[in-house]
Design a protein around this nucleic acid. Structure first.
Lengths: 335, 335
DNA sequence: CACACTCGAGTAATCGTTTTCTCAAAAGTT
DNA sequence: AACTTTTGAGAAAACGATTACTCGAGTGTG
């Protein structure tokens, strides 16, 4: 692949002039610039990124590390990040940690070594890659979940309140024994949603019962098993609050296996408004999180830090809202 | 951020020794190596990627450029790529071209400048970024669609046959007027599926009718409009073959608006087996494409080219298979 | 006309690694 | 004991761009 030297030779100028011409500096004669441009064109010249980044001491790339590319919640975040970053001249590379702490650390490590301009991290679990980030000068923003024990800019969703509202709403719909399927202990979003569920029960004057709570990974399979174990209780719950949309898939599948209907048999509210949620029968009630906004806000925050914004770390909390559909209506009938 | 020089100073050795020690070369005294390691540790040293890549003339990163992160088909591909790449010591960066030819070119451009080891490209439309790739020495593999006018390794799915089989199957189920909603003209996957649909009609002895065919972007909204226009015909189709899963969402939404049921009112087969497909009422019949395998095969191909495998460009064609569910059963009843 | 200034382009230093040389000391050979 | 071979570590040369200097030529001013 052609280097700047070859371009310089072909155009009969120095490498400095080539560099200036190609970077649109105005201190170069227009005739020379034209010669450089055609020479570069003819050689198919493409500047060597590593060399440029090394010299400039910066790389116009943001890393976005998420825990599950197959989850619409995270892909919506990525779209938000991308839109903001792109407008500011940054590329975004998306890394999928697959909810694996080891992979997450490895991606953070790569991002740091490659000297990306900044990192957006949606931390997986407890042992996050966040500790690698803190201390290095590389700006970073935590999305969706805080980094345990590390201070830094954070964009969260007030899912506790949303969970409380959703639970209260279930009780108002006539469900007297709401259960809850949430994520692993120690994962903030999982714990907040559980706490919100308990608050909601209290607000509705229902005595909570820990046997109506199950935890699993934020995946379909675990949630399916949890659902089965709940519904096989002698006093099963009459409705469920489900902590994310991947889990909702597992819950729905198990309901189908058991021959139960959402709504009439088991009230259902799940977190995250996936595109398919409203197409189910009955349409799935959800707590819609502002995923796209998490992305845009996070990216803006990161860009301002990259632009050397000083000041204390900030925490932005966005709010989620309930979208009631028929899966939380005990009177719903298939036809 | 600490450099190799500072580590060398602190350990009282030369930079060459530091480099050798950290890269696990065996030609370095174990006592010195230990000193280097602790010095690096204490300084939080992290090698400068751009410098390393510049010197080594290679970057252990693969770029995967896809047209829609929100489409499960592509995220499944990415998982396949990731698994293979990771095992071989490569990182994968995922770039979302958003079906925008301009963005695609821009990402290809970034990938080339950053001198990634290889590029996996699932081309968007006609004006692909592929022409940027051909000619450069950077190995690349086209996924899902061929690069128009450019020879290179390609991994495809035989969606033509799959479309034919699906159409024939619809007719065997008793539907006599299958329609087709496919992607934009000129996009190979769209055209192949349409051709397969026509073959299927022919095989079933049904006279095709071009008024039963609609094209739109591979998105929900356009497919929804197409569905409406088809079903408002005086002689509407009694069933539909839909060319991808994002489109299926639009079709389903429109059916609901029109108060029609899949299966009993309109037979439905869509491409791509999304996780939610089987949870619908009726469960959605699909043509399941081996998305994960596209990823693994593509990545292996790319890795072997990176490993200097010579030889003519290859084309691997994987096959898709029909997964019949109730949405293509005219006798299906809600209960 | 002499002098200071501006302008534009070339020279060379620099970014932080890896790796080829180079060379002294240790080890082995006759 | 003299000589070759091996070993291990430092000095210095890449890698390919950007950019701080430098310097000659052209321009403006008193």
């Amino acid at each position: 692949m052609a280097t700047i030297n070859e371009v310089a030779d072909r155009a009969g100028v120095s490498t400095a002039t080539v560099s200036r011409a190609l970077n649109g500096k105005n201190t170069v004669d227009s005739e020379l610039a034209a010669r450089v441009l055609t020479a570069a064109e003819e050689l198919g010249y493409r500047p060597n990124g590593p060399a440029r980044n090394l010299r400039r001491q910066e790389t116009p790339v943001l890393a976005l590390i998420i825990s599950d590319v197959e989850n619409p919640f995270f892909t919506a975040i990525s779209r938000g990040v991308e839109d903001v970053a792109h407008a500011a001249g940054y590329s975004v590379v998306l890394c999928n940690s697959d909810d694996d702490a080891e992979k997450e650390r490895s991606y953070v490590s790569v991002a740091l070594e490659e000297r990306v301009a900044g990192v957006l991290l949606s931390p997986t679990g407890r042992t996050s890659g966040g500790e690698l980030l803190s201390g290095t000068g590389t700006p970073f923003v935590a999305l969706d979940r805080p980094l345990p024990g590390i201070s830094g800019d954070t964009v969260l969703v007030d899912t506790g309140s949303a969970a409380r509202d959703a639970t209260k709403y279930l009780s108002e719909q006539g469900y007297r024994r709401p259960g809850c399927i949430t994520g692993p202990a120690g994962v903030p979003t999982a714990d907040e949603r559980l706490a919100g569920y308990r608050d909601g029960l209290r607000a509705a004057g229902i005595r909570g019962c820990s046997s109506l709570v199950r935890r699993s990974e934020f995946k379909a399979a675990g949630a399916g098993r949890a659902t089965r174990s709940l519904l096989e209780l002698t006093q099963p719950p009459d409705s469920l609050l489900v902590a994310n949309n991947a889990m909702a898939l597992g819950v729905l599948e198990t309901l189908r296996e058991l021959g139960l209907r959402a709504g009439s048999d088991v009230g259902l509210v799940a977190f995250d408004d996936a595109p398919w949620a409203r197409l189910l029968d009955p349409p799935l009630s959800v707590v819609a999180q502002p995923a796209y906004d998490i992305g845009t806000v996070g990216a803006q925050l990161l860009l301002s830090r990259i632009g050397n914004e000083r000041g204390e770390p900030t925490t932005t909390t966005l709010s989620a809202h309930l979208v009631p559909r028929a899966s939380s209506d005990p009177r719903w009938k298939p036809f």
